[in-house]
Design a protein around this nucleic acid. Structure first.
Length: 209
DNA sequence: CTCCCGATAT
DNA sequence: ATATCAGGAG
């Protein structure tokens, strides 16, 4: 079986197990999603949802964050970690969105990654969930780990992983592939203790081929 | 490459 | 006690 067939089977099985692909982060607007994804760096989405639930009652617009002191934002997001960088980025990012994009989150890769605290991963997540047509493939810690374990790539460099996957993964899967791998990575194929006995795609994994 | 960093699982 | 969590910037 070639890797393309393995990919098709893996996606079909995971789709059946986890259902519709969608981020687990809670949001009501593209801007709320952008901030949630910035906060999700090295932090569980569960924690991010706890923080944003309370924070968005107080501020949930670029204008709101742009007019706040960085220290105020720090207090609101402290429990997500990296809070000094994230607070500074959220404020600058909000200012940029107001000044350069008329207060609306831009929906293309070039503009998104020029925002403070936004890299390719964050941009792909936001674009993917809003438009369902990402310009690239999200490579986070789970996609990195599972892509290596399955045997699709042999590197830990996220940029190289994305470039390699984009070469042969059909574009129609650029949204589903990372979303399903992330769900599977959190539930079964975990970093610390992978539960291979419960894994539905075990026969397509590198170690069993 | 290093640094940023609190919360949680193991 | 240590690894890990939907990373990004310098």
């Amino acid at each position: 079986m070639n890797r393309r067939e393995r990919l098709e089977n893996i996606i079909a099985i995971l789709k059946k197990e986890y259902g519709e692909s969608k981020v687990m982060l809670n949001y009501n607007t593209p801007f709320e999603l952008l901030i949630a994804v910035i906060l999700s760096a090295q932090c569980t989405d569960k924690r991010v949802n706890m923080v944003t639930k309370e924070m968005y009652k107080i501020v949930n617009t670029p204008e709101g964050f742009a007019n706040m002191e960085v220290e105020e934002i720090e207090k609101l997001i402290k429990s997500t970690g990296f809070y000094r960088n994230k607070a500074k980025n959220i404020k600058q990012c909000s200012i940029d969105i107001i000044e350069k994009y008329d207060g609306k989150v831009p929906m293309n890769m070039d503009d998104l990654i020029n925002l403070a605290g936004v890299g390719r991963k964050t941009a792909n997540v936001v674009m993917g969930d809003i438009t369902k047509e990402p310009e690239g493939i999200v490579v986070d810690t789970h996609v990195k780990r599972l892509s290596n374990r399955i045997g699709f790539v042999k590197t830990n460099n996220p940029i190289i992983i994305e470039r390699e996957l984009m070469k042969w993964v059909p574009k129609k899967y650029w949204f589903d592939y990372p979303n399903l791998l992330i769900r599977h990575g959190r539930a079964i194929c975990k970093a610390r203790k992978a539960e291979c006995n419960k894994c539905g795609i075990n026969e397509y994994c590198k170690k069993n081929i």
